[in-house]
Design a protein around this nucleic acid. Structure first.
Ligand SMILES: [Mn+2]
Ligand SMILES: [Mn+2]
Ligand SMILES: [Zn+2]
Ligand SMILES: [Zn+2]
Lengths: 166, 166
DNA sequence: AAGCTAATTGCAATCGGATTGCAGCTACAT
DNA sequence: ATGTAGCTGCAATCCGATTGCAATTAGCTT
């Protein structure tokens, strides 16, 4: 890592060392603020701005990637050797990572067909996690909470042309 | 559409009619500002805020979805009967849509495994489009611009544990 | 058709995370 | 030890997203 920076004419500082540690050893998908909290617990003197700039640096060298999970805050993810996807709960914000070489391959093929040189993959399913659905039904909600079976967002057919007509 | 609003206690207005038209008849993935421009060309009196609120409404009733393609601006996409993915050029911002029932099925399976009730799918490949790569090579850049073949972001193995260690 | 009221709209103000300018501090090559 | 290109902390700024509010309007009621 130190060498990596060196070749770029960049310097290793105690702040960066701490922030790198925090980033690579904490749960993934942290916001700048969350990571800053973590960092502060290790070295109270490190500023938010420095965390922000270091995350930017991490992304620039290819070890990190910005992620937008839908709550309006940017999150930072570690880049893995092979792309991975996410299952995101829009209720509690929990995330689960998964790998799928089949999906990656299919996406690669699509990109190739179009002549797009892939740089980053975004593979996400956003929905309501099991835990949140169980809580909801516990509070007496009448909504269908079954996940098993064929229910999915894609099933309900939406007549867009009709809707656009008026 | 009018009926749809009615059942919700909502009103159809000339502004909404215009904005609906603009949204469903323009290219997909427009920003609020872009759509506002379009709307203004149809009715100069319609305010940005109204466009924003109407897009929000469209999303709430399930006909639209927010998208973050990486340039920091929210875009609005039409929801299709079956989920679709995107090929996004991070250089020129062009997008191409594609459908893949295989990918959708694989994602559905993953979600089911985890107990996540799918609500929205995000399937994107971000990279450099053919056109942009050709322009780059034309300006005498030495970078490898081949898209065909096995090149992909997933191939370069990144030793994260090592990086995190220091 | 006129009246009534909740919904909608335009505009200005505000919000809040992202980003930047800058003066003082520091890593590290020499 | 010295010099200089990089860093850092802090405050200021940016800017798209969101909201408060008074005037206006759609659609129901009489
Ligand atoms: Mn991840
Ligand atoms: Mn689309
Ligand atoms: Zn949840
Ligand atoms: Zn392009």
């Amino acid at each position: 890592m130190r060498n990596f920076l060196k070749t770029k004419g960049l310097k290793m500082t105690s702040q960066r060392e701490t922030i790198f540690r925090a980033f690579f050893e904490s749960e993934p998908h942290m916001t700048v603020e969350e990571l800053h909290e973590r960092v502060i617990s290790m070295d109270p003197a490190i500023a938010y701005t420095t965390v922000w700039r270091t995350l930017k640096l991490i992304c620039e060298v290819g070890l990190g990637e910005k992620k937008y999970f839908g709550d309006g805050v940017v999150r930072y993810d570690r880049v893995t050797a092979t792309p991975h996807g996410h299952l995101v709960c829009q209720k509690c914000g929990s995330t689960e990572e998964f790998f799928s070489s089949e999906i990656t391959r299919l996406l690669q093929d699509r990109a190739d067909e179009s002549g797009l040189l892939p740089e980053e993959y975004r593979i996400e399913v956003v929905g309501i996690c099991l835990k949140c659905r169980q809580q909801r039904e516990a509070s007496g909600d009448v909504t269908d909470t079954s996940a098993k079976g064929k229910s999915s967002a894609g099933d309900n057919v939406i007549d867009i042309s009709g809707a656009g007509g008026m």
